[in-house]
Design a protein around this nucleic acid. Structure first.
Length: 253
DNA sequence: GTGGATCCTAAGTT
DNA sequence: AAACTTAGGATCC
């Protein structure tokens, strides 16, 4: 996070934090974790809705992360048609192979080199070879990652500027990028650009909405997204988080 | 019960 | 609308 390393341990009623690699306090950690959001008020509002109200006992406390837009974009491009353990390995391999070493505080083997690496900058990924990227288990996504990195590195695309655009314009701009479809675009809007109205429809959310709102009737992801953004408005992103967590908790198959 | 071939799925996009 | 990287689990000899 912000060029440093943060360790978190959640305990009942508190969060233990340890960090190193960046001077002073961890950068905007509260914002990064979404811990600066008025969750109590959000959940009070969402509880007016019958399905979310029923999920809340299991899902209460979930917030929206505010990742760096660049890291968020690449991560979700990697996530498409993939599974979470492999996504994690890919991200770690990218950092190990193309990121900057983070000065070791004290832990970790000093003989084995740096234990931690930053997420790679666009410039480094833009000049990476496809085989080198494929060694990060990216598969056919290697080309997407490299081409997106080039667009950002040569300033054709300005991710930070997207957050100041009207929602629909930012959405369309993201969809222009190779490997970015509706779902990934919504994820970047939500977790990277701070647009709480975004509503990504992945397989879990699709199952949840079909089961709990459409009596098990199949709907297209597009239709679900449109429907949800209308129904939940400015809190759609939060609603999505609770539906996602609820679906996984309920083990929807 | 073990081992390997095969199939299937997984935070979708082209 | 089929094809797509890759790994891990499920099923079947």
């Amino acid at each position: 996070v912000g060029g440093g390393v943060v360790w978190l341990r959640q305990q009942p009623g508190r969060l233990l934090v340890r960090w190193h690699g960046s001077p002073g306090s961890p950068p905007h950690l509260r914002r990064y974790l979404g811990a600066d959001q008025p969750l109590a008020a959000v959940e009070r509002a969402l509880a007016r809705e019958r399905v979310i109200r029923r999920l809340l006992p299991q899902t209460s406390g979930i917030g929206l992360m505010r990742q760096d837009p660049w890291e968020c974009l690449v991560s979700f491009v990697v996530s498409a048609f993939n599974n979470i353990p492999k996504i994690q390995r890919s991200i770690q391999a990218l950092a190990r192979g193309f990121g900057e070493p983070i000065a070791d505080g004290q832990a970790g083997g000093s003989d084995a080199g740096p234990a931690d690496w930053t997420f790679p900058c666009p410039e480094r990924l833009a000049e990476a070879s496809l085989p080198a990227l494929r060694r990060c288990l990216l598969g056919y996504r290697a080309r997407y990652v490299r081409d997106i990195a080039r667009l950002v590195a040569d300033r054709t695309v300005d991710l930070d500027a997207l957050s100041r655009l009207p929602l629909e314009e930012a959405r369309c701009a993201l969809r222009e990028l190779p490997g970015v479809g509706e779902k990934v675009a919504e994820c970047v809007l939500l977790f990277g650009l701070g647009r709480d109205e975004a509503f990504p429809v992945d397989v879990w959310v699709k199952r949840a909405v079909e089961r709990w709102y459409f009596r098990g009737r199949s709907q297209t992801p597009r239709a679900i997204g449109t429907w949800a953004r209308e129904r939940f408005g400015r809190l759609a992103g939060y609603a999505q988080q609770h539906l996602f967590a609820g679906a996984r908790w309920a083990g929807l198959a």
